[in-house]
Nucleic acid binder design. Structure first.
Lengths: 165, 165
DNA sequence: CATGATGTTCAATATTTACTGAACAAACCG
DNA sequence: CGGTTTGTTCAGTAAATATTGAACATCATG
């Protein structure tokens, strides 16, 4: 009988479907497909996996795997676990949405918000040293920008709060 | 004297800086650069602009301009204004952050969330028709997914609330 | 230290995505 | 209608981005 084989086959399909889910999520967040695949394979795995495990199962290159794991580490979407008697690094997916979201926010979003702040500051300076018949209109608009920026800055921490633990 | 010329020059720099701000914002939101440029030029302009005004000022093609304005319209980031005695469509930038954000959320994000729902539904079905020694672990994980999805769905409207008017 | 195992980097390449411009459709107007 | 203006579409091309794989670093261990 092929009962065993069927079980494995079904698991493969389930795995693929979960991975596909994270590939789409990665796409939404502007991350490379391989990063979604890597998070997916670690998320479904019942045991920690090392670089080569991921690489072989996903059939992607060593380079992509190394780079992808680095990205996932950078915002705390995965963490390493120590496996006694093995020199390799083993990874598991972080399952706290709060941790992942806040890591993502502070590593991938916050820098953009900050550099936006800088630019608006420069725009304000240029405006102050400027005269024209549209100055009033421009001033209003720069103030609108400053307002948006303020609200965006406040929104991030609040979003994390309401995502909860 | 070149007082006039200097004023214009300064305005150009200011305009460029504002446009650059929205180009970066577009990048963050995964929208083409040209879409950021278009919103930017409309945002800084004291008067409504038509397709050709935008195209010429930004030095981009008719095709990009048409496509970009369509995208901006699709989530309400710009609106058309009627100019008597002119057959062309004129556009102004929407300045209500709430309107833009909610348009963006419902047009660009919500569809992804919905298709994620579908996929998780399918994953759940596959899991229920499945047996193995890791079923318990997988069940926990699928429940985690369902939990995330639920929270993501609730977060969107809340984010809009706290962005305010 | 020499070896082999593990992971990283980066130049070359493949893939994806955006942009262009010319052909086309629609609407107005004499 | 025929000509003109305005805007859209889409096949081809250009530009940006991700992936590969081989060379390189690191390090534990005999």
């Amino acid at each position: 009988m092929n009962g065993e084989a069927e079980k494995v086959r079904t698991l493969d399909e389930l795995e693929s479907e979960v991975i596909a889910l994270f590939v789409r999520a990665a796409d939404m967040l502007n991350l490379p497909r391989s990063v979604g695949e890597l998070y997916g394979i670690l998320f479904v795995s019942a045991v920690p996996l090392c670089l080569d495990d991921c690489r072989i199962r996903l059939n992607i290159s060593k380079g992509s795997t190394s780079q992808g794991l680095k990205i996932l580490r950078s915002f705390g979407a995965i963490r390493t676990v120590y496996v006694p008697g093995d020199r390799k690094d083993y990874y598991v997916a972080e399952t706290s949405l709060r941790k992942i979201a806040s890591g993502f926010a502070s590593e991938q979003i916050q820098p953009h918000v900050a550099s936006g702040d800088d630019r608006i500051g420069r725009i304000r300076e240029m405006l102050d040293a400027y005269e024209s018949d549209t100055k009033d209109d421009l001033t209003e608009k720069v103030e609108l920008l400053e307002n948006w920026q303020r609200r965006a800055g406040k929104a991030l921490p609040l979003i994390l709060k309401l995502i909860g633990k």
